[in-house]
């Protein structure tokens, strides 16, 4: 379980998170919605310990990661997999080495096992046979899928998807959404999703959290969120469902 308690984060005096509280339960798919620039990516980076909040607690499986030293934090970070907004593939490595990156460093697999695992993962994301392609040869959608394969490789307990379907065509977006559900069901991976794709967000999530003005203003099941009495949230959703 992940608990965020009263998390504050400023950038040069500009507040982005202002006392945010949120609980993420094991095994669920939770989608964070909110306007562009609301701080969704910043929230992700705080959860994973890539950014340190100015104040507040971020408790991952009972441990407040804001109080850990670098080596301890690094251990906790291996519980997370993250699909970055821009995929963040290592562009000096090919597809195979990208997917194998975590396997080489976090598992004791030998090269034969790594080869098999990478092929398996690429099949899951529908990119079989692309092992030797350089990152520069991939389209935006392919990059996201390789990024997902790379994040899945080390079997993380928590997977964070930062706008996994933005910029993809509807068919590809649908296949990614199905993948998120499949990964969550089969591997029991707790999934935290940021998306602007409201429709699929409501379809795939167990819970939805609404981020605005640096705090979570509402959480609930998709049905609860749809019927929320919060005026701001109703407006936000109706904008996307037009």
């Amino acid at each position: 379980m992940i608990q965020l308690k009263n998390v504050h984060k400023n950038f040069e005096g500009k507040p982005v998170l202002r006392g945010l509280n949120l609980e993420i339960y094991d095994g669920e798919i939770i989608t964070i919605i909110g306007a562009s620039g609301a701080g969704k990516s910043v929230l992700f980076k705080n959860i994973v310990g890539l950014m340190k909040p100015d104040s507040g607690e971020i408790i991952v499986d009972g441990v407040d990661i804001t109080k850990l030293d670098e080596d301890e934090l690094h251990k906790v970070q291996t519980k997370f997999g993250m699909l970055f907004q821009g995929a963040a593939l290592f562009d000096s490595l090919n597809v195979y080495e990208n997917v194998a990156f975590g396997l080489r460093r976090l598992t004791n697999m030998n090269e034969v096992q790594i080869k098999r695992k990478v092929a398996e993962l690429l099949e899951v994301v529908n990119l079989s046979g692309t092992q030797n392609l350089p990152v520069s040869a991939l389209s935006g959608g392919m990059k996201k899928r390789v990024g997902l394969a790379r994040a899945l490789a080390t079997s993380p307990k928590y997977l964070l998807y930062d706008e996994p379907t933005t910029g993809l065509d509807p068919i590809l977006a649908d296949s990614i959404n199905k993948l998120i559900v499949k990964v969550n069901k089969q591997l029991k991976v707790t999934s935290i999703v940021v998306t602007h794709d409201m429709k699929s967000g409501f379809e795939i999530s167990h819970r939805i959290a609404f981020l605005s003005d640096g705090v979570i203003k509402e959480t609930g099941t998709p049905d609860e969120i749809k019927n929320s009495k919060l005026e701001e949230l109703r407006k936000f959703i109706s904008l996307y469902f037009q």
């Binding site: 980076k45 994973v48 310990g49 890539l50 690094h74 970070q77 291996t78 997370f80 997999g81 993250m82 970055f84 907004q85 821009g86 963040a88 593939l89 290592f90 562009d91 000096s92 990156f101 975590g102 460093r105 976090l106 790379r150 994040a151 080390t154 993380p156």
Partner: peptide, 21 residues
């Protein structure tokens, strides 16, 4: 230039969850 590009495209961030830094 190479490291800077890695930084602004979040490749540096990506290292941390993959057992590296």
């Amino acid at each position: 230039a190479e490291i800077g590009t890695m930084k602004v495209t979040e490749q540096i961030d990506a290292l941390y969850t993959l057992g590296s830094e």
